[in-house]
Each structure stands twice: as C-alpha cells, then as structure tokens.
C-alpha cells in the first residue's frame, strides 16, 4: 500500500504542477510569422491585460489540428493563415461566425459574408531570387510564370507543399483559376522537374533563397521584403507580369473553443491602430490603413494584375485537388 500512496502522491504532485488556469489567459493557434505573433501577443497583453499563449502552425497543420481536436478544442481562435484554409474549416463546421461593427467595415471581398472568417491583411505572391546565385549562374530573375519552366532552372526552384502550406495551395488554386484545371496541373507537372524540394512551411523557400540554399522561390511579398530589410538578405524580387495570386490572411473563431469572450476581444483588437501598426511594421498591408504608417517598401495590392480565387470553391475542393497534385505532380 505504501507504493499506492506513493503513486497517488506523485500524481498529486503532477496535478499541483499543472499551470493555473488563470482567467486572463487565452490559448490560440497562429500561422503568422513567429516574431510578429510575439509582438502582437505583447501588444494585446499591454492593452488588455490578457496573456496570449500561442502555438505557431502552418496553415495545413493548424486546420488539421483544429479538426483533430473538434471534440475538445484547445485553442480559442486561429490567427493568420491563408483565407482558403479558413474557408475550408467553415465547410467542415469547425468555426463560428463573428460579426461586429468593426468587421462589417471590412470590404466584402476580404471577409466571409456570414462572418465565419475575417481578413487581416492582403499579400501577393511574387518570385524571389538570390542575387549572388543569379550572378554566379548568369541567370536573370523571371517575370512570368511560364519562364519558371525553362530547363535552365532545373533543381533550383523551391515551393512549399500544397498539402501542408496554405501559400502553396493558394498558388495552385490561383493557377487553376487563371489557366483552368488541366492546364494548371500540366504546368505544375512541368515545374516539378525544376523543383529541388517541396517544403512543409510556406515561408521556408524564401528563407532558403535568403541564405542561398535555393536560387529561386515563390512566396509572399511581405515575407520576402521583411527578410531583405531586416536581415539584409541578398534577394531580388519580381512581381509576375502575367498576373499573380494573393492571399487574404484571416482570423476565425474556433467552434466550442475556450473563452470565446476573450477571443472576441482579441479579434476586435486585431483591427485597432496598434495592431494594424504592428502588422504594417512587419511589412504586411493591414485592412484599415487609417492612422497607420506604412513601410515605404510595402506594395499596396491596388493597381496590380491579380488573380481572384473563389475562396469557397477553393476550400471545398481542397482534398480533391491535393490528391490530384500528389498523384499527378509529386511523383
């Protein structure tokens, strides 16, 4: 019995060590860059006194996790991550609508009409190339999507895996919307010959460009310019002239998640000037620009040739398209 008492004692110790469930704490999943998420968490805590515990997950990982936890949601909301991923969760009935006076001011194209997700910022897909590698190999940065298929790029291009990365699924759906499904898959198939690696996270290819691990990558402009400005990375950027895809990074309330009131408070705060400024400082283009000082390098999506993706369609067709990609392209 001594042993039993010991076991109970140890379990008691474990329970005692469990972190206190303080009322002023909220657990969230985020797909934003870790340092930006950290700044937002600090800013929100300063303004509201609520501590944010966040786990950074790629878009695909976040939605898979929210689905796996649907009987027992661990996080209150999902912050950031490509809007298509949020649309997917809406159809899987894993999120709850949130509509307020603030979110109603968001342009219709940047939020779900029933409030399942609300846009945070817009970001465009661009090409990024390592300057010194380009020089070394005597290449120039492409300006159209078709140039990527040239055999001279063999083994030099990285894009993320559309199965796990929202960035890459965004790219896939944008290509389908502009070329049609069959042509888009043929394009991806030809591109496959030039790809050295499909990374798990959407930001990895551009970071690989920064340190010269790969010559060319496709990524979001704001991620790349941040690398250039903050780390002095030798990167050249080009915006595809034949049109490019863009993301609407969004926020969703997780259905049945803990502390919805605090989550609502965090969503409201995300549209405050302070949060918008933190986003703008990270080279994002926030939804509400009033009173926000934009970085001079930032590109406003206005006036660019953009490929609109029907989010609901993209969310509903994800499984089918990823299976197609795996069987047709990633062979």
């Amino acid at each position: 019995m001594k042993y039993l008492i010991g076991l109970v004692g140890v379990l008691g110790l474990v329970a005692g060590c469990s972190k206190p469930f303080s009322a002023n704490k909220i657990a969230i999943y985020t797909s934003l860059e870790e340092s930006v998420a950290q700044k937002l968490a600090e800013g929100f805590e300063k303004d509201s006194g609520i501590k944010v515990e966040f786990v950074r997950l790629a878009t695909g990982e976040a939605s898979a996790r929210i689905e796996a936890e649907k009987n027992n949601p661990q996080a209150a909301l999902w912050l950031g991550g490509v809007g298509i991923g949020h649309a997917e969760l809406k159809f899987k009935d894993l999120t709850t609508p949130y509509i307020s006076q603030t979110t109603e001011k968001i342009p219709m194209s940047l939020r779900d009409e029933r409030g399942y997700w609300n846009g945070l910022y817009q970001g465009i897909l661009v090409f990024a190339a390592n300057k010194s590698q380009l020089e070394k190999k005597n290449l120039t940065i492409p300006t159209t999507w078709s140039e990527l298929l040239d055999p001279k790029w063999k083994g030099m291009i990285q894009i993320p895996n559309p199965g796990t990365s929202g960035t890459s699924y965004n790219l896939l759906t944008a290509l389908i919307q502009s070329m049609g499904e069959e042509k888009a898959f043929n394009y991806m198939k030809s591109l496959h010959k030039n790809i050295s690696q499909y990374t798990k996270s959407g930001m990895a290819p551009t970071k690989n460009v920064a340190i010269g691990e790969t010559v060319l990558a496709v990524g979001y402009f704001h991620d790349i310019i941040r690398l250039v400005e903050e780390s002095r990375a030798p990167i050249q950027i080009s915006i595809p002239l034949d049109g490019t895809g863009y993301e609407v990074s969004a926020v969703s309330l997780i259905k049945g998640g803990p502390k919805p009131e605090l989550a609502a408070q965090l969503i409201e705060w995300m549209y405050s000037p302070r949060a918008s400024q933190i986003l703008a400082d990270g080279y994002y283009v926030p939804i509400f620009l009033e009173g926000v000082e934009m970085k001079k390098e930032a590109i406003l999506p206005k006036g660019l040739k953009l490929i609109d993706v029907n989010m609901d369609w993209a969310g509903q067709n994800k499984e089918r398209l990823i299976n197609l990609w795996n069987s047709k392209v990633n062979t």
Binding site: A58, G60, E61, S63, A64, R65, E67, A68, N161, G163, T164, I195, S196, Q197, Y198, K200, E319, I322
Partner: peptide, 25 residues
C-alpha cells in the same frame, strides 16, 4: 528525414504530413 529528406519521402514523415499536415487522420 524531416529536415533532410528533400524529395525522398519516408514513412515516418509521410504519416506526420498526412495526419497533421493534411488532416487525413
């Protein structure tokens, strides 16, 4: 393999990608 596999897929990483990345439990 998570870091070094490149295009050389292996089971342990595929299981992770299917389960966690694509949500195909």
């Amino acid at each position: 393999p998570m870091l070094l596999s490149g295009k050389f897929d292996v089971l342990s990483v595929q299981a992770y990608l299917q389960f966690t990345g694509s949500g195909n439990l």
